[in-house]
């Protein structure tokens, strides 16, 4: 099945305990496109990526990647599929016992039989792309948050996957590396024919490279479309989110009881912190 859609979710429902995170989400991600997933903090963007990667199981609905139902694959097939997916974790998730070089080399050594000299060249190329070739001997604890995320990016593209999921690639980057990263993501996507999913709060950067954008809120897709479509959209959700206004349909607060009520009648916290 080689249709145009690489990732397809249908009627996706997911709960964390009693809390509904997704309530019927349909998403189509076209092959070769850059798709932005945006939404308020805590709506479940990271959760969505984990559902696509098969690390979490939906309560209802399906996720298809490259024509295969992710949650019906057996262990071997799922790992086969994951070899073709790269994922950049929100916090980098580097292996703390390996230095930068070995972190990037790790998936290559695990999945290929390439000679060390070839791996050396590949690793340096990936590190050069993210501007950290000089940092190859540092340990992850010696990196700043933004650097760690760039190393993680180099690691995610090490195996040249067919799709990459970026969880907040731009947070903690200065304007220069941000610009480089934005161009790099677009370049990788077009030059290697990848499919990219970007989860981000950086509206301008995401709008500037995404072919299509999904706005998630309250467990549903509240708006979708290209940058122009969203800008022109009359949807209150889209307008509020793109302009960053505090008031509107998108809630800024995690669901809670009424504020005044909480102040007057709520339970005080424990007197002693346990730490």
């Amino acid at each position: 099945m080689t249709d145009d859609i690489l990732v397809k979710t249908r009627d996706l429902c997911f709960k964390r305990g009693e809390r509904v995170i997704f309530d019927g989400v349909d998403i189509d991600i076209r092959r070769g496109s850059v798709t932005g997933i945006m939404g308020p903090s805590g709506t479940g963007k990271t959760t969505l990526l984990r559902l696509i990667g098969g690390q979490l199981f939906p309560d209802q609905g399906t996720v298809h990647v490259d024509g295969e139902n992710v949650h019906e694959l057996n262990h071997g097939q799922l790992y086969q599929l994951r070899q073709r997916m790269g994922m950049l974790f929100q916090n980098g998730a580097l292996l703390t016992d390996l230095n930068v070089y070995d972190n990037v080399a790790f998936p290559l050594r695990e999945h290929t039989n390439l000679s060390e000299s070839l791996i050396h060249k590949l690793v340096l190329m990936k590190l050069e792309a993210v501007g950290l070739r000089g940092a190859r001997d540092l340990m992850p604890t010696e990196l700043s948050g933004g650097m760690a995320r760039r190393v993680a990016l180099a690691r995610a593209i090490a195996l040249d996957p067919m799709m990459i999921m970026y969880d907040e690639p731009f947070t903690g980057q200065d304007p220069i590396s941000m610009g480089v990263l934005v161009r790099l993501i677009r370049l990788l996507n077009d030059a290697l024919g990848l499919t990219s999913i970007i989860v981000s709060h950086d509206i301008q950067e995401t709008l500037s490279i995404a072919d299509e954008i999904y706005l998630l809120s309250g467990g549903k897709v509240v708006a979708r479309g290209s940058t122009d479509e969203l800008n022109a959209s009359k949807s209150e959700w889209a307008q509020q989110f793109l302009k960053g206004q505090p008031d509107g349909p998108v809630p800024f607060h995690y669901s809670a009881v009424d504020y005044a009520d909480d102040l007057l009648n709520g339970h005080p916290g424990r007197a002693q912190s346990r730490v």
Binding site: G53, Q55, H75, Y79, Q80, L81, R82, Q83, M85, G86, M87, F89, N91, A93, L94, L95, T96, F106, P107, E110, H111, A152, R155, L159
Partner: peptide, 14 residues
């Protein structure tokens, strides 16, 4: 706790 195991899973390394 630092998601290293998760990251390995996503790199298709069990």
């Amino acid at each position: 706790a630092t998601e290293q195991l998760s990251a390995m899973e996503m790199m298709a390394i069990d």
